[in-house]
């Protein structure tokens, strides 16, 4: 199904983009965790409380923002992370057919004894492997940040509780004592395994979609345009679905509803490490068992790749322009 020489070619072609995105993702994730250690969210608690009515627009409950795992977990929803993953997926997905057709190189490649399916599968294999590595680099960046960062915590002063009234009175009027401790004491990196898998599933679908559009077109710019247009449309639907109750049905028809990395972190915090991988148990605040969401994205991605293979095999290949 795969061709060794084509694999080599695609690895060579995509390596620059991979290293750029990989470096950006790793460094950003690391820095993002370090920034978490700089900001004491406790100071913003009052402000955040005023925005409770907008909590539904946030990917997680506001309470999670006051925990280290919750704040670190937000990395998976950061626009830069999503942007890098989408760039990889759209760039690689759009390249496979319309990109090669546009450059005119498909003609020479397909003059060799390789089937169209082989070409598509080889390309997809490199792109999917690259995507998986990029997601792992995000996780690795988070892990590096967690292991390299220390946080300063304020120790609560000893208090005494006044009976009947139920008020805690501090026993000391000195400045509050602080202690420095490694972030890894507060955050278990394994918590983000499920979030990383969600990021991969999200990218897999976008990659499949871009490949499908690429297989039916001869201009790469049009493939990129179509994919981005679809992406933005889905994002708007997601936002509207959350904003208005009358439009809630839109949440059922947008793939963004299946991307829940922070929800997975919350589930791990409350239910344990194995909880996000369940295919049967439904937890609070989600409609389906947690593992079903990424599997829907992967399933849709597989459908897109399959349709792309059929379209590519059936279409006439125009001569280079």
């Amino acid at each position: 199904m795969m061709n060794r020489v084509l694999l080599k070619k695609y690895i060579g072609q995509s390596s620059l983009l991979f290293f750029s995105c990989g470096l950006a993702l790793f460094a950003f994730s690391w820095i993002r965790v370090w920034v978490v250690s700089l900001i004491d969210m406790g100071q913003f608690q009052t402000i955040v409380e005023q925005f409770r009515e907008f909590e539904k627009f946030a990917p997680i409950e506001f309470d999670s923002l006051f925990t280290y795992p919750g704040r670190v977990g937000m990395t998976f929803d950061e626009p830069i992370v999503i942007l890098c993953i989408v760039i990889w997926c759209v760039a690689r997905g759009s390249d496979v057919i319309s990109g090669e057709l546009g450059r005119g190189t498909l003609e020479m490649v397909l003059s060799q004894p390789v089937s169209r399916t082989q070409l598509l599968v080889s390309h997809a294999a490199v792109s999917i492997l690259g995507l998986a590595l990029l997601c792992l680099l995000v996780w690795a960046g988070v892990g590096a940040g967690v292991y390299a960062t220390t946080v300063e915590e304020t120790l609560p002063p000893p208090t005494v509780r006044i009976p009947i009234v139920g008020i805690d009175l501090p026993l000391s009027v000195d400045d509050p004592q602080t202690q420095t401790l490694p972030l890894r004491d507060r955050v278990d990196v394994r918590v983000f395994a499920a979030s990383t898998f969600h990021l991969f599933a999200f990218g897999f679908f976008v990659l499949g979609l871009a490949t499908l559009f690429s297989s039916t077109d001869r201009y790469r710019w049009r493939t990129v345009g179509s994919t981005v247009a679809f992406y933005i449309l889905q994002m708007v639907m997601f936002g509207l679905g959350k904003a208005a109750e009358s439009l809630e049905y839109l949440l059922y028809i947008t793939f963004f509803s299946c991307y829940k990395p922070q929800k997975m972190s919350s589930i791990v915090a409350s239910e344990g490490l194995a909880a996000p991988w369940s295919l049967t148990h439904v937890y609070s605040n989600i409609w389906l068992p947690p593992m079903v969401y990424p599997l829907i994205l992967i399933g849709l991605g597989v459908v897109c790749f399959s349709l792309a293979t059929v379209c590519f095999n059936k279409r006439d290949l125009p001569a280079p322009l």
Binding site: N3, V5, L6, K9, G12, Q13, R103, G104, T105, E107, M108, V109, L110, S111, Q112, P113, V114, A319, P320
Partner: peptide
């Protein structure tokens, strides 16, 4: 295509490779 070699009218080759790299790539293919 295993039995035929074909030179397109407008042959375009991978631009990132050197000439010898192109020859090696197609010889392996």
């Amino acid at each position: 295509r295993r039995q035929v070699t074909y030179l397109p009218g407008d042959a375009r080759l991978p631009r990132h490779l050197r000439g010898d790299g192109v020859l090696r790539f197609f010889a392996e293919m």
